[in-house]
Design a protein around this nucleic acid. Structure first.
Length: 951
RNA sequence: GCGCGGUUAGCUCAGUGGUAGAGCACUACAUUGACACUGUAGGGGUCAAAGGUUCAAACCCUUUACCGCGCACCA
């Protein structure tokens, strides 16, 4: 550090060191290293994503863990990458193309061309977030960066699909699914969020066909589905309606239908709650999950009236055809009013499922999709329940367990183009007929049998529509799932009338393989052998089901295979759930609110270290984080403090001082060494427990309060003195403390610590691979052992002594205020020590009190009204007769005395209680006795002060 | 409806049974030789409410209120 600036300027430092780390390949993990492994896989951000504060939080934590592990001597792999994020990316690109005027709809381009555009977009603009992570200082192994649509990764996805298909866990079914009318795709249950919706409950009446003049009143929130009603249901136990079961009603819509066509049955079903509404339920099997089930029980027809895009179709009738479903609702209400069928409408609030991505209400829709029955469920559930895999905070284990206990099959197909296309070829026009075997002279049955025989495990699995895998049932084949790498088979299939399923897989169907598919699975790579299972996973609780739970199941299903020979297939040993970042009013960060600051702006303004520190400081384990730019400012200030403390050391001159001479240590030296020891312990423990805000709080306290405010100030007594030996020894202590402190700070503040590590010359002291090149590999500080403490004579007594001295100083400084003296005015203090007081301690006292002079006088007799501080170490006077407001001071001391008295009576009361003295542990009893003595001493001091004021 | 978390200084939060803490904000003083991105000192709290356990409760138990979240939902 030749030219040292007065303020820390992160901008000139950060890029330099990041390049240095990259050049040195310090982030690259060596799979053949003999060192113990530490690994994390990054939760892959969306390839369309830009860095948010949530990413900052998440990735700073991972970086801290990774950097700490390196300093612990581990071989560290932090594996980065991005996620293709099907719906999000497709939407982004589609929107961009529309904006450019290239298309009106994706169909204008067609699948191939559209995908070309997406790839083009991905290659040009995707992955910005990766560059942003580098700005943050993330020490990822970029040589191992992965993308979920990399060819190798895609093969893993196909392979897993085919395997699960073969195991009978993947099946195709016509079911009620959550349909997103905006994205035009099915969604999984997890992608639907319930939102409270203010609407109306509409009451309308229908006439019973067999009893003209008799009406039933039905309550519904969705009148637009009336044309799709195929029954009216009542509870068979409901005395009001039970007698009507088996009769029919006239469905009012569509109006143009004949009386015959309008007839729908009244059925009895236990599902109907007769408390709700009128106790009569309209049944729309095509547009409601519960109704679909009722429909199934009663073999009702399902009439679809809402098309995929959310518009009413022909079956909805002439009045509604082509209308948007919400518009149609209004029209139906008008229609019912016209018909005289509408009885009333009541305001009503209910929960409606919304598409998480597109933020529109989902439409329950009957459709044919691929589903997955989850694998390895029991093992995955047990491993968390038994605590073999730990969740932090552990309350999430309960949430996980609950979800795992009620698993629903996962709808994995999506009607999108961007994603992993389902590796299934299907015979388009095959219904239930058996045409296949004959087609074009190609005997598929024989062909598949041949393939299966020659390569029974890896090539082709096919499934009878009724269930089992069969080699002889090929003529029933409608679908063929093809394992990766068999273009030859695909060619044959296509030649004989098969086409690939147009759908793609849910994005999470690829990201659930992330911990091992990124490491070269299914090959037994060195990386996989070395770094799987990963050590920690750091993620938000909002994706516990989407991602974490599924990764656990995939891990057990695919890494549990014998060839990997793993003691345990769990994908990670610990899961740390971060909080969710909110603004300072507690609202979620969102683009529309404009309350999400750009981390890059914050980095430009305050520096990456400041941002990291600020976010860590505000991020207690398991709580949401209210973000305030002030936190970052605090981080910036802290970096500046660190900078200037080092600058102070530099200005004292001299080489780095290695050896500390025990005999020359002052009490202050010993005190700061003990404080350092405590800080090392606390930070290490906090990190082991994932308590990052505790760790930063400790570092802040230690460095700012203990080191800068007390130790550095006290050390000036020696540094400004003339004793060269003691001066050198003090510098040695400073160097010792600073070099340890930089290391403690490094995981949190990687840039400034690297800059100072080199600038201060601490690097030159260390072996190449242990800090000589970079602080990244400097050993993590160890708490001092007893030998060390003995050698340097560090005892609790030193600690106590300095704390008493600091108390005296605090009171002494307060005397200025009492005397109304400016804090910069040099004044003379008189000290009347209670015992021995070394001369060099007097010098320290003088400096800490900013005194002009410090007179030691055991026989000093103060005049009335002399401000005085009285502690166990002695009495400190600021002789300024007549300058103080005696009455005000009296009042202050009296108030203090009152407080002391109340403390004393509290303790006395306890000690006077035999129940207390007999039951309490000895240490607590002793503590109380000690406390009484201390308070009594304080009382004496206060009384003496009062007496002095009264003359 | 079930479950989880929270309620401590003006604000944001630590604090797992034994003397109520931090940062910010506030007040006063100070341009002093590391740092004004600073320093020194100060004011500020019936620990949401009630009851219980205990020698002792912010902390353990019960109930209640309010805030937030998750799951499941009756149209």
């Amino acid at each position: 550090m030749s030219e040292i600036s007065k303020a820390y300027e992160p901008q000139s430092v950060e890029d330099k060191w990041y390049l240095f780390w990259l050049d040195g390949k310090f982030f690259v993990a060596d799979a053949k290293s003999p060192k113990p492994a530490y690994s994390i896989v990054i939760p892959p951000p969306n390839v369309t994503g830009v860095l948010t504060l949530g990413h900052v939080l998440n990735n700073t934590i991972q970086d801290i863990l990774a950097r700490k592990a390196r300093m612990d001597g581990k071989e560290v792999l932090w594996l980065p990458g991005t996620d293709h994020a099907g719906i999000a990316t497709q939407t982004v690109v589609e929107r961009a193309l529309k904006k450019e005027g290239k298309i009106k709809h994706r169909d204008d381009l067609g699948r191939e061309k559209f995908l070309e555009e997406v790839w083009k977009w991905k290659n040009e603009k995707g992955g910005i977030i990766i560059q942003q992570l580098k700005k943050l200082g993330a020490s990822c192994d970029w040589t191992r960066e992965r993308f979920t649509m990399d060819p190798e990764y895609s093969r893993c996805v196909q392979r897993v699909f085919v395997d699960l298909y073969k195991k009978g866990l993947i099946y195709r079914g016509k079911r009620m699914v959550n349909w997103c009318p905006a994205s035009l795709t099915a969604l999984s249950d997890e992608e639907v969020v319930m939102k409270e919706q203010k609407g109306f409950l509409y009451y309308f009446k229908v006439e019973v066909a067999e009893a003209p003049g008799t009406f039933l009143t039905i309550a519904t929130t969705r009148p637009e589905t009336i044309p799709g009603d195929t029954a009216v249901a009542v509870n068979p136990k409901d005395p009001r309606y039970a007698h009507l079961i088996g009769k029919h009603v006239l469905r009012p819509l569509p109006v143009e239908l004949s009386r015959e066509q309008k007839l729908i049955p009244i059925i009895g079903d236990e599902h109907v709650d007769f408390e709700f509404g009128t106790g009569v339920l309209k049944v729309t099997p095509a547009h409601d999950k519960a109704d679909f089930e009722i429909g199934a029980r009663h073999k009702l027809a399902a009439i679809e009236v809402i098309a995929a895009n959310g518009q009413m179709n022909d079956a909805a009738g002439a009045d509604l055809r082509g209308l948007d479903r919400f518009k149609a609702r209004k029209v139906v209400v008008e229609k019912l009013t016209e018909l005289g069928a509408l009885e009333k409408e009541e305001p009503y609030t209910n929960n409606v499922g919304y598409s998480e991505r597109a933020d529109v209400p989902v439409e329950p829709r009957l459709s044919e999709q691929w589903f997955l029955k989850y694998p390895s469920v029991e093992k995955s559930r047990a491993v968390v329940a038994k605590g073999e895999m730990k969740f932090h905070p552990d309350r999430w284990a309960k949430v996980y367990d609950h979800w795992m206990g009620g698993l629903q099959d996962w709808c994995v197909s999506r009607q999108l183009w961007w994603g992993h296309r389902i590796p299934v070829w299907r015979q388009k026009n095959l219904t239930d007929s058996l045409l296949l075997a004959e087609s074009g002279g190609f005997n598929l049955e024989n062909y598949l049998n041949e393939l299966t025989k020659s390569d029974p495990d890896r090539i082709v699995y096919f499934r009878h529509p009724t269930g089992e895998i069969g080699q002889t049932a090929a003529r029933f084949i409608r679908y063929v799932a093809v394992a990766p790498g068999r273009e030859d088979i695909i060619k044959q299939l296509e030649e004989y009338g098969f086409t690939q399923d147009p759908d793609v897989l849910d994005t999470w169907f690829s990201s659930w393989l992330w911990p091992f598919a990124t490491m070269g699975w299914p090959e037994q790579t060195d990386t996989l052998k070395k770094f799987y299972p990963t050590t920690d996973l750091v993620t938000g609780p909002d994706i516990i089901f989407f991602w974490v739970a599924r990764m656990i199941m995939a891990g057990y299903e695919y890494m549990g295979e014998p060839q990997f020979g793993l003691p345990d297939a769990m994908p990670f040993q610990n899961v740390y759930f971060t909080g969710i970042i909110r603004d300072k009013q507690g609202r979620k960060m969102s683009k529309s609110l404009g309350n999400s600051p750009d981390p890059l702006d914050l980095i430009a303004k305050f520096g990456a270290d400041a941002l990291r520190f600020g976010v860590m400081r505000a991020a207690p384990l398991g709580q949401d984080i209210l973000f305030d730019e002030q936190n970052v400012e605090l981080g910036r200030n802290f970096c500046n403090k660190l900078w200037n403390a080092c600058r102070f050391r530099q200005m004292q001159g001299g080489e780095v001082q290695g050896e500390i001479e025990p005999t020359l240590l002052s009490s202050d030296d010993k005190w700061i060494l003990l404080k350092l020891d405590a800080a090392i312990r606390e930070v290490t423990i906090a990190l082991n427990e994932y308590k990052f805000s505790d760790a930063t709080a400790t570092l802040y306290r230690f460095f700012w309060s203990e080191y800068c405010d007390w130790y550095v100030e006290a050390s000036k007594a020696v540094l400004q003195g003339t004793d060269a030996a003691r001066k050198a020894n003090t510098l040695a202590v400073i160097d010792f403390v600073l070099s340890h402190t930089l290391r403690l700070f490094h995981p949190f503040l990687p840039f400034i610590t690297e800059e100072l590590w080199h600038g201060m010359g601490y690097a030159t002291d260390m072996p190449e691979n242990q800090g000589g090149k970079t602080i990244m590999f400097a050993p993590w500080p160890m708490p001092f052992d007893n030998d060390f403490k003995k050698h340097y004579g560090l005892t609790e007594r030193d600690e106590k002594q300095i704390e008493a001295r600091n108390e005296l100083v605090g009171q002494g400084r307060n005397l200025r205020r009492v005397g109304n003296i400016a804090s910069n005015k040099k004044v003379k203090f008189i000290f009347k020590p209670a015992g021995n007081f070394a001369a060099n301690e007097t010098e320290v006292l003088k400096i800490l009190l900013n005194a002009e002079a410090m007179e030691m006088n055991a026989n000093y007799q103060p005049a009335k009204g002399t401000p005085a501080a009285r502690t166990g170490l002695g009495e400190l006077f600021l002789p300024l007769e007549g300058l103080i407001d005696v009455e005000a001071e009296k009042l202050r001391v009296k108030k203090e005395l009152e407080k002391i008295e109340s403390e004393i009576s509290k303790v006395e009361q306890k000690l006077g209680n035999p129940n207390f003295t007999q039951k309490v542990p000895a240490t607590v009893l002793e503590e109380h006795k000690q406390r009484l003595v201390e308070w009594q001493a304080k009382r004496e001091h206060a009384k003496a002060a009062l007496a002095a004021l009264q003359g």
